Structure formats: structure tokens, C-alpha cells
Simulated assay, not measured.
Amino acid sequence: MADEPRKLTARITHLEMAERSTVSVPTPIGIRLAIMRATDIPVHYYRYLYEQVGRPHHWMMRRKQSDAEISATINAQTTEIHVLYADGCPAGFAELDLARMPDEAEILYFGLVPDFQGRGLGSFFLAEAIAAAWSHGPQKVAIHTNSLDNPRALQLYQKMGFTPVGWSEEEVEAWD
């Protein structure tokens, strides 16, 4: 009999931004950066990004989805995926969910590959993801973080102009 997956409780903070942020983030120097919107992204590449960024934080939703489900979601007209490259290597990604437009654009997933954390890329990339979300003209931009995420995530989101609007809890399977 296989071992049961280890369960973790995540306290989720729901945040919103009701107007464009005026926070300006300079482009980090000393590293060549590119942000590219991925269109027709192959599932295997998406799974790679999702695992590299999400494994330390026990992201769960896409782990449970089939390749067909993921392909349908990530290649939908209401999804945008932006990949951050640093010196030619994938350093992070942001996934925008535009299904509730014009009311809301949600930054559904956002994060950096652990090798690229601590270099000042998070603020820069988040500012770009926020700008991409606002470019669609929503009434608000939403993002969520939880107690399993990077401990600086909530502080960064608030610094960038997001305001907490609610909390919830969810049980997730550990990504061991």
C-alpha cells in the first residue's frame, strides 16, 4: 500500500489592486533579461516551469491536471503566459487569467526559479506582470499568496500596490 501524501495547510491571502500602481522598478543591471509571452506553449515546457517555480511552495492545481486539461487552459484565449529569461535561461513565469474580464485580470501564477531568487528580479518581473495585466483594461488586478509561498511574497505584493481583501485556508498535498 502506497504512503498517503503528506498534507499541509496553506493560509491564503487574497489581494487586489483597484488602480494602476505608480511604483517604478528599475531594470536590474549586470544580467541580460528578456520577458517573452509564450504562445502555443508546449505542455512539457509549462510543466517544467510550473515544477521549477512551484515545487518549493507545494503548488498543486496543475499537478492534478492531465496534459489535455493543461493544454486547453494554457493555450486558451483567456490565458497569457510570460516567461522571464535571465542570461538565456528560464528564470520565472507569470500566468494571467483573463476569464473574468473586464471586471478582473488575475495573476494566477507568479514566481522565480530558485536559482534566480535574491537577485532583485522579483520586483522587476512582478512590475512587468502587473503592467501586462493592466494592459487589458480590467477594473482590478488580483493575486493570491499563501503561507507556503516565499515568505517575502506578501510583503512584495503589498509594496507593489496590492491590498489584502480576504483570507482562506486550503489543504494541499506536499510536493516531496
Rank of each mutant, 00 (worst) to 15 (best):
Q139Y: 12
T78S: 12
D115W: 03
L15M: 15
G54C: 01
V53I: 08
Y45G: 01
A131S: 13
D115G: 13
R100H: 14
E19Q: 13
I107Y: 06
L8H: 01
S66D: 04
A142N: 05
P90C: 07
R63I: 02
V43Y: 02
K140N: 05
A99P: 00
H14W: 10
E16A: 14
I107A: 06
L98Q: 13
N146K: 11
H57I: 11
R55L: 13
P26D: 12
I29H: 15
T79P: 02
G137I: 05
A105L: 05
Y157D: 09
P42S: 15
D176E: 14
L126V: 05
A133F: 00
Q52D: 08
T78Q: 13
M61V: 12
E104D: 03
G120V: 01
T73V: 09
G120M: 01
A127T: 14
T79V: 11
P28L: 10
L15V: 09
D176L: 15
P56R: 12
V53W: 02
W167R: 13
I107N: 01
N75D: 04
E106I: 13
M160Q: 08
A86L: 07
G122S: 14
P56L: 06
T79M: 10
S123P: 07
F124G: 00
G118R: 00
G88W: 02
E169T: 15
P114R: 11
G30M: 10
A153Q: 06
T13E: 02
Q155S: 14
I81Q: 09
E171I: 15
G120R: 09
A133K: 00
E170Y: 04
R63K: 11
H57W: 15
G92N: 00
N150W: 08
D97Y: 03
A174R: 08
L84P: 07
I143C: 02
S168N: 09
S66R: 11
R20I: 05
L33M: 05
M61S: 11
P151Y: 01
K159D: 03
R63A: 07
F116N: 03
M160G: 01
S147Q: 07
L98S: 09
L112P: 00
G111F: 04
A131K: 15
Q155I: 11
G92S: 02
Q158D: 04
Y157K: 10
A105Q: 01
D3P: 04
I35A: 08
R47Y: 08
Q52W: 02
M101V: 05
D87G: 05
G54A: 03
Q77Y: 04
A72D: 07
A131E: 13
E104I: 05
K159M: 09
C89V: 11
H144G: 11
E169P: 09
E19R: 15
A18P: 09
L121Q: 08
P56H: 04
T22L: 11
F116P: 03
L156K: 12
W134F: 09
A94D: 07
Y45L: 10
Q65M: 15
M61G: 09
T27C: 14
G88T: 06
